[in-house]
Nucleic acid binder design. Sequence first.
RNA 1: GCGGCAAUAGUCUAGCGGUAGGACACGGGCUUCCCAAGCCUGUAACCCGGGUUCGAAUCCCGGUUGCCGCACCA
Length: 478
Amino acid sequence: MAVKDDKVEELARRRGFLWQAYEIYGGTAGFYDYGPLGARLKRQLEAEWRLFYSLEGFFEIESPTIAPVSVFKASGHLSCFSDLAVVCNKCDSFFRVDEELTAGGKCPECGGELVAAGELNLMFQTRIGVPKGRDGTRRGEGYLRPETAQGMFVNFQRLLRFNRSKLPFGVIQLGKAYRNEISPRQSLIRLREFTMAEVEVFVDPEAKNSHPNFDNVRDRRIWINPAEGEECETSVEDAVRNGTIANEYLGYHIAKVKEFLERIGIPSDRLRFRQHRKDEMAHYARDCWDAEFMSRRYGWMEIVGIADRGDYDLSAHAMHSKVDMGVPTQTRSKIIPHVIEPSYGLDRIIYALLESAFTEEQVGKETRKVLRFVPELAPVKAAVFPLLNRTELKQKAEEVFQSLKRELVYVDYDDSGSIGRRYRRQDEIGTPYCVTIDYQTLEDDTVTIRNRDTMAQQRVRIADLPAVILADIRKLHV
RNA sequence: GCGGCAAUAGUCUAGCGGUAGGACACGGGCUUCCCAAGCCUGUAACCCGGGUUCGAAUCCCGGUUGCCGCACCA
């Protein structure tokens, strides 16, 4: 609030998309509220995502957000998150303990002495049930999940049986995850509580190079930034064949991620796929590509991670739980499937959507601000106005409003101020269609539909209104 | 976490020790036959807690939040 805000974020706050959480108590960093329009935008994004992966034949589950410590001992999150931290007693610089940096060592910044600063744990810890046993021992140690993925791995046996013991199959999960970030910043980019949408594809490791639908994506063009070599545009097929992308499954899902992001309105010229270098890869990953969005405000930012997790998770849970995660095969002994995981950060995608939808243009002396959402995601699908503030027009407009609402649900009515002002209000929240009732309507039951992007109007019969608007919305779904 | 800077209506801001002002937005009314027009009118703010002072939005201290840099981002 202090510094002049970015226009997109100012609009998002003013019009009810995004608010700092717990504002009346001064706010809490890393937490955001979605206001009425933001929540609607997000719900619709989630619906599109479900639809997209359900069409792949994947099934959705919903696991708890709290898990006992044993899950994270197995997954590696506990040890990878619980490193000790040291702090310099001279300049207060803060470091994660490693071979070079230990308590008693020298600060690389100023040469001061490093002292232990406690545990650096990025997971929120909690207690499940009564925190102490009769003998005084602590128990019920639990954590808020830092990713939704573990819920799918720990249920692998159930899921496999559900799929009648066949590979491959895909499972999706959408929900909150929590990371106690040291310094959350940049609005929706680094939150402490955020929404993930994760896909786990379980595949026979020997089948990773023969995805049944690879033909559908082989010619897709993608911008890649590989760990070694130059950033370039390439086809999915070439990147897989020359080994830049490790296998067909990974290539296929990179292509699907791009398809989804384009569908929801992220322009492809602001998208690239960047490969992680060995030293930045997560503890579970063999290969990892980030879908990155070019933000005008923050530069390249990760919005989706597509990882080849190998058999890391299933093997780890098999070992810790002593439950067999193997899958019987016809010709070989049991195998542990590999996992290909596209993991979407939905809040970051909401930010990317807001930024890429936002445009300003000069109309006469005024600046017209428009959020050019794809109609599927627009939080208000249509608005109905009486041309003038006259009883007979208002009555008719109210009728049209009520009937349109039954079809489209998310419809606004507005009779305040001039017609131009009302168009602008709707432009600012991205409403794709504005329906205006004028005197001709009273004579022949036709209205004008005004298009958000072109500002052009067409006259249609009231009876045809829902069909005309729905047809336009569905056109985008081919 | 560290350092620097900042915090005034819904939004953007003026004021910088002595009655808190504007613009836009928003509500009500008038006007208006299609793109933020005009007129009248109304609502609305000094981040929180301490201190200094006769008096604090203003100065000092602490906290919170935000921005920038460093670190962190499994």
